[in-house]
Write a protein that binds this DNA or RNA. Structure first.
Lengths: 350, 350
DNA sequence: ATAATTAATGTAACGCGTTACATCTTTTAT
DNA sequence: ATAAAAGATGTAACGCGTTACATTAATTAT
């Protein structure tokens, strides 16, 4: 085993100093005579020497790498969060391993193990297993068996009460539904539908529950026939809307599980000769890029992307460095309404 | 320094065998008595032991990690390629470090160094420095100084002839423009414009050059006034189209630098009372998700995403394992036309 | 000038999996 | 039964940066 790259010993030899001294100038630690430091630094530069993070991590038990597991980066929501995570991680000198599970649970397990072998300092989970309404026990066991005590932070999901070195940062979708309902009812809507999503997934169940709970606070009616679940895609929006259109009585406003679905709904309305927002106000969720390209542009509830990423990374880093996480380990961030063009006062009977 | 996790020595002690034997069952290498193997394996399982990849990598000089540097994952094109890269990488048991430069060259340099310290087995570059028409010499020097001899593969870009352990995989955008022109002229268009993009960036310059070269092969005219560069965004499409609309004479077909720009163009046309494709046929590029949500849907030239990712990773792996790369180290893959709704025969004088 | 501090620097072990090489068994051949 | 070959397992060095501890040099105090 011989390495092409130069090692700290090569530098030490060249400088006639010990590796300890080189290490000291490398880390700006310990006392090193200015003269020595300059000499060593010059040799380091001349040889384009960079310390081997593997060796460093092996000894320090810190790899400065964190793992991020998501369903798919091609989904704009995840892409935005990943970007924010990375921007925040860089502040802590962490580099991210990105793992796409393709919503395949076995693959999520596989990656979890893989990241454990890579000795990541922390794990960030979003979607998939972490966004199921009833926490998956086997997955938690996997974490306990192979990841513990490495800290885990969940974004928009949960696992807490099961894995005890875990925190979470979420968008408050429950409260967001109240905002949505407040907005829509104040616009004059009384008949409100809900399209897209899938039961068993937190982001759907939370909204559905809020929809029911809010009925007593706001002046609207929600009928089961106005709830058409499908999935989270554009096509899901099309399908759900087509389904809704079969009903004899129709709502005047529609809340969509996300913007992709909202886009599908809007385009379906238009294709069928309806106007948005005149015939149907369509409210989106997420504030993803698609929301500004439909016509009309989508009024939507935005995730606090930047905070979601930065707070999650903060949490993770505090845990990595054993700093107490104040009182709360699970925080909910407010979503905010971005008014664009897809909602207005209802044209028809309110 | 004491570790919480169990190490190979713990397993060895528990089994009353040497670490070599444990290592052998771990890697299925060397001769191990079936009985011993079973014993060791059972202890490994019981202790939830997983080998430390850092230690392994330190000795083997292979980290099974590759670095991917891109401008931003939030850009759908990059997200798709990254996803394909990862799907391909998993076949080679590689995990990917994702680095977003935010199109900041200093950050790209920073990440390049960082990945070098992480001892990645290979580097995958897309966009940014690797997509500038004139290769950035300083960046190549950085690669030579700190990355070499680690192999590098560029996707949709180049650096070749400079860094000698480098291959590239690209979409043939030049040929794609010929396809585009062939398609548009055969539809009857003779006046063709080009919107979006930015000079100095390969994906723009290649198309622009092709546009000029192709004039002798196809029956169309291209005027300088019909070329409005801006950038690669939706807003860029809006701006460019608004600019174009100021001209007295207008083209009947427009080629956009990408689908985001095409979407901006389409929506601008519609807002201004024009019809797409009747008044203007608008052709996109990339086949990104936005192309199916505009109305009309965008006819576009698609990148061979899956191959782009898998071939790039193949190349990288061959280089990592010192397998010769056949003859070619730079390959061009055919893009293909996806017909949707944004192009038709011209309504006006052809 | 000498002792007492403080500053610089060196030595060697450590973290953990791998593997070349050596040693000890077991099996096969004669 | 004995030598030769094959199989199983162990020992220890290695990859490389870090750091506790020891040692030596330079200052400061007395």
């Amino acid at each position: 085993m011989k390495r092409g790259k130069v090692s700290i010993r090569d530098i030490a030899r060249e400088c006639n100093v010990s590796v300890a001294t080189v290490s000291r100038v490398l880390n700006n630690s310990g006392a090193v005579k200015e003269e020595t430091r300059k000499l060593v630094q010059s040799v380091i530069d001349r040889y384009n020497y960079r310390p081997n993070e593997l060796a460093r991590g092996l000894y320090t038990q810190r790899t400065k790498s964190i793992g991020v597991i998501i369903p798919e980066v091609t989904n704009h929501f995840f892409a935005k969060v990943v970007l924010e995570i990375e921007k925040a991680a860089i502040e802590y000198e962490q580099t991210v391993f990105l793992c796409n599970t393709l919503s395949d649970n076995a693959l999520q397990d596989f990656y979890t193990l893989r990241l454990s072998e890579k000795q990541v300092d922390g794990l960030l989970l979003l979607g998939g297993r972490a966004n199921e309404t009833k926490t998956n026990v086997q997955y938690v066991k996997l974490l306990k068996d192979y990841i513990y005590p490495t800290p885990v932070v969940i974004i928009n999901g949960k696992l807490d009460n099961y894995y005890d070195n875990c925190a979470s940062v979420s968008s408050d979708e429950h409260e967001a539904m109240f905002q949505a309902l407040d907005y829509l009812t104040s616009l004059g809507h009384r008949k409100i539908g809900f399209l897209g999503g899938k039961r068993g997934i937190m982001s759907t169940d939370i909204k559905l529950n809020a929809l029911k709970e809010a009925e007593s606070s706001f002046n609207y009616v929600m009928k089961e026939e106005w709830i058409k679940l499908s999935n989270y895609t554009y096509q899901g929006g099309v399908d759900a809307m087509l389904e809704l259109l079969k009903e004899k009585e129709l709502p005047t406003a529609i809340i969509s599980i996300n913007d992709e679905v909202a886009a599908g709904i809007i385009n379906t309305c238009i294709s069928k000769g309806y106007s948005v927002p005149d015939d149907f106000s369509v409210l989106g969720f997420d504030n993803s890029s698609i929301s500004t390209v439909t016509m009309p542009k989508i009024t939507t509830l935005s995730h606090p992307y930047e905070e979601l990423g930065s707070i999650a990374v903060d949490f993770l880093n505090n845990m990595i460095n054993d700093k107490p996480l104040k009182d709360v380990t699970n925080i909910n961030l407010k979503m905010n309404l971005v008014e664009r063009e897809s909602c207005s006062r209802p044209r028809r009977d309110t």
